[in-house]
Design a protein around this nucleic acid. Structure first.
Lengths: 160, 160
DNA sequence: GTCGTTTACTTGGACGTCCAAGTAAATTTC
DNA sequence: GAAATTTACTTGGACGTCCAAGTAAACGAC
């Protein structure tokens, strides 16, 4: 078996196509996402969760009151409002969060963690840590190389 | 504005949750994928393409005859057979590839690049190179840091 | 050479994501 | 303080991805 990305690199060069290093990094990111998401979701599946839903629960667990406006959640998780609606629909259906009206702003809906949701997110977190978040086998230097390189990318995208 | 990933890191530590570095790297990868895919697809949209369809066309353009079995394409692109069917359906509908029977194996379908497809993929490649594949602004060292870290991840996933 | 197994692709269905448009409530403007 | 604008969320629809099941052809065993 050969490495599909190394193969793409060779082809790219052979045809005189541009930005080979960038193409390789971009393709690597796509593949890495696929690998990590697959591993993470596999571990979360027994809990009835996936990565999106886990992230939403974790965000609520970190908040002072266990409840946040949906809009704020979308901002923090960097996803579209419609995706938040969808995620919370599912978590609510499973009894892990509950929608509540905002006390002072009638436009706003709060998602509030239930006791069951708080219990489950703790268990799920432990399971994720046990597989090192899908990054098992990578040395600290590799993790930091990924993190540092991507930090520049995120900076250029205006993330901070 | 603050960095959502740095924020997640702080929360994670504050709650004594495990594998902080791995969590951070995994979350970074997710976000990087989102950024790169968004930029790449924005550039490809005027051509009626997206990243998946572009990758399929490029793969065909690199092949000796401009045609490949769908199964082989899924292997190289590392996607599910059903996704290949979907991608080729769309490319065929747009007249960029054509399905052809395999000359000797009746089970196999070939996707064959049309003249229009070959023309378009060349233009699209130039457009992608002009934005450095969504990685504009990253120094070579960062690209290589990403690439090297992810190579370990891919190795551990059995990519090569 | 026939039967069972494997391989190749397609189909139908579930999900997750986004966008555009819609509804409803707050805020701003004058 | 009424009208126009902005903000917050939901809805319907398009896409892309995967899985499971189905069809069809080739391979292998005997």
């Amino acid at each position: 078996m050969f490495d599909p990305i190394a193969e793409a690199r060779r082809n790219w060069e052979r045809h005189g196509w541009g930005s080979v290093d960038a193409m390789s990094a971009a393709t690597s990111i796509t593949r890495a996402h696929q690998i990590v998401l697959g591993r993470v979701n596999a571990v979360l599946a027994p809990f009835g969760l996936n990565f999106s839903r886990f992230e939403a629960l974790a965000l609520l667990a970190f908040s002072r009151t266990g409840a946040l406006p949906l809009g704020k959640m979308g901002e923090r998780l960097q996803v579209h409002p419609a995706s938040v609606t969808n995620t919370i629909d599912r978590l609510e259906r499973d009894g892990l969060v509950q929608r509540m009206p905002h006390p002072t702003d009638g436009r706003t809906t709060l998602a509030s963690l239930t006791a069951e949701g708080r219990r489950l997110v703790g268990q799920a977190q432990e399971a994720l840590a046990s597989i090192d978040f899908g990054m098992a086998g990578l040395e600290r230097a590799h993790l930091e190389g990924i993190d540092a390189g991507i930090r520049e990318l995120r900076r250029s995208a205006g993330d901070f």
